[in-house]
Simulated assay, not measured.
Amino acid sequence: MSEPPQHSDQADARAPRTCWWHPDRRTGLRCARCERPACPDCLREATVGYQCVDCVAAARKQHQAQRARYRKSGFGYRTIAGARVPSRPLVTYTLIALNVVVFVITAAQAQDVMRNFQSEVMNLGVLVPLVAATGEWWRVITSGFLHIGLLHLAVNMFALWILGKELERVLGTARYLVLYLLSLLGGSVAVFAFSSPNTPVAGASGAVYGVLGGILIAVLRLRLNLTPIIAIIVLNLAISIGVKQISLFGHLGGLVVGVLVCAAMVYAPSRHRTGWQAGAVAIILAALIGAYAIRYAQLSALVWY
């Protein structure tokens, strides 16, 4: 007595079925993604095998949504300096807020917005080269966050708000912060080295000029029109020379350092770019420290003499 043939699961899987979208069409093909039976008209070639029209549409929609998120956040794109594009210029906003907070503290201590230079914080942080040479080295940094009067603060912060946002998008968050701080230090070291030893200097102008120099290099690297930015630099330098109360050396020091740092960022070879940038930054920092040390020795001898 014979038994009826047994159909295995594998044989059932190979058996022709009707297309999911065209029930009147028999097919032995399946979608590689959802495994639903599909006729040749309902399949599309994909990276792996063939997928049905629904799966292809879902993958396209998912890809478009992902690109939209990347475009919104900026994380999907790289700047000319090799950094990810920040979604918002948070460093610029933070620096502005920090300068404003410090100004409010000095104004509160002096109980006068326009005469805040009489505050204790101002006396402890303003850069007087001869005083800094007695061991109070921190003044070359703290002076960059102090402003004498409301107008001084407003001008610098407005310039930082206009220029800083653009440069931060070009360089990325970390590189932009490095440029700002080194430009601040460059302006202070120039004041320390070349200005009158007894003249007090304060303000973020050196750092702002460094940002301005960085914009110049970025525009040059992107091959854009240089005329507007050069005109701004020339006009500001003319004002710095014409107004005695403005520290020309602080502006020039910040401008030169900003140009050098930004050039190192945007012209670094793409191969081992981060290493080249870090090396250039280290050299610039070492040069500033060296210039400070030389002038420190000269002024120290003058103080003790």
Results as ranks from 00 to 15, higher is better:
residue 220 L to C: 05
residue 78 R to E: 08
residue 160 L to C: 02
residue 265 M to W: 10
residue 208 V to I: 14
residue 88 R to D: 00
residue 102 V to P: 03
residue 234 V to Y: 14
residue 149 G to T: 04
residue 57 A to H: 05
residue 88 R to E: 03
residue 82 G to K: 11
residue 205 S to D: 13
residue 32 A to T: 02
residue 100 V to G: 04
residue 73 S to C: 04
residue 20 W to P: 00
residue 101 V to H: 08
residue 8 S to P: 01
residue 112 D to A: 02
residue 124 L to Q: 12
residue 274 T to A: 12
residue 174 A to K: 15
residue 33 R to P: 00
residue 21 W to D: 09
residue 62 Q to F: 01
residue 286 A to W: 14
residue 263 A to G: 08
residue 214 G to S: 04
residue 83 A to D: 09
residue 183 S to Q: 05
residue 294 I to C: 07
residue 227 T to D: 09
residue 36 R to Q: 15
residue 99 N to W: 02
residue 113 V to Y: 15
residue 109 Q to N: 04
residue 267 Y to F: 14
residue 217 I to R: 11
residue 294 I to Q: 13
residue 6 Q to K: 11
residue 141 I to Y: 14
residue 76 G to W: 13
residue 69 R to H: 04
residue 256 V to W: 14
residue 29 L to Q: 14
residue 194 F to K: 07
residue 109 Q to D: 06
residue 146 L to C: 01
residue 25 R to D: 06
residue 126 V to T: 07
residue 187 G to L: 12
residue 212 L to R: 05
residue 246 I to Q: 13
residue 247 S to C: 07
residue 92 T to Y: 11
residue 43 L to D: 05
residue 290 G to E: 10
residue 5 P to R: 15
residue 67 R to M: 14
residue 267 Y to S: 03
residue 50 Y to P: 00
residue 254 G to V: 04
residue 19 C to Q: 08
residue 53 V to P: 00
residue 20 W to F: 07
residue 173 T to H: 11
residue 18 T to K: 10
residue 221 R to H: 09
residue 41 D to R: 15
residue 305 Y to K: 10
residue 237 L to W: 11
residue 191 V to D: 08
residue 294 I to Y: 15
residue 33 R to A: 07
residue 86 P to L: 08
residue 80 I to T: 02
residue 57 A to Q: 11
residue 205 S to N: 13
residue 5 P to S: 11
residue 179 L to D: 10
residue 115 R to T: 02
residue 128 V to N: 09
residue 102 V to R: 06
residue 225 N to D: 13
residue 223 R to W: 09
residue 265 M to T: 02
residue 154 A to F: 12
residue 15 A to G: 01
residue 264 A to C: 12
residue 14 R to E: 11
residue 95 L to Y: 01
residue 271 R to N: 03
residue 201 V to F: 11
residue 33 R to K: 09
residue 74 G to N: 12
residue 72 K to P: 00
residue 304 W to I: 06
residue 18 T to D: 11
residue 191 V to F: 08
residue 169 R to P: 00
residue 286 A to S: 09
residue 65 A to T: 07
residue 98 L to V: 11
residue 92 T to I: 05
residue 218 A to I: 05
residue 70 Y to W: 12
residue 182 L to G: 04
residue 4 P to L: 15
residue 163 L to H: 06
residue 241 I to T: 03
residue 81 A to E: 12
residue 178 V to K: 15
residue 97 A to L: 14
residue 179 L to K: 06
residue 105 I to M: 12
residue 151 L to N: 03
residue 242 G to V: 03
residue 213 G to M: 09
residue 292 Y to I: 01
residue 121 V to P: 00
residue 82 G to R: 09
residue 236 N to C: 06
residue 249 F to C: 01
residue 221 R to F: 03
residue 17 R to F: 05
residue 292 Y to H: 10
residue 33 R to W: 10
residue 277 Q to S: 04
residue 4 P to H: 09
residue 286 A to L: 10
residue 134 T to M: 06
residue 84 R to C: 02
residue 103 F to E: 05
residue 65 A to F: 08
residue 26 R to L: 13
residue 63 H to I: 02
residue 15 A to W: 14
residue 111 Q to P: 00
residue 295 R to T: 07
residue 144 G to I: 02
residue 23 P to N: 15
residue 192 F to S: 02
residue 109 Q to E: 15
residue 172 G to W: 13
residue 120 E to C: 01
residue 53 V to M: 09
residue 259 V to I: 15
residue 190 A to P: 01
residue 202 A to G: 05
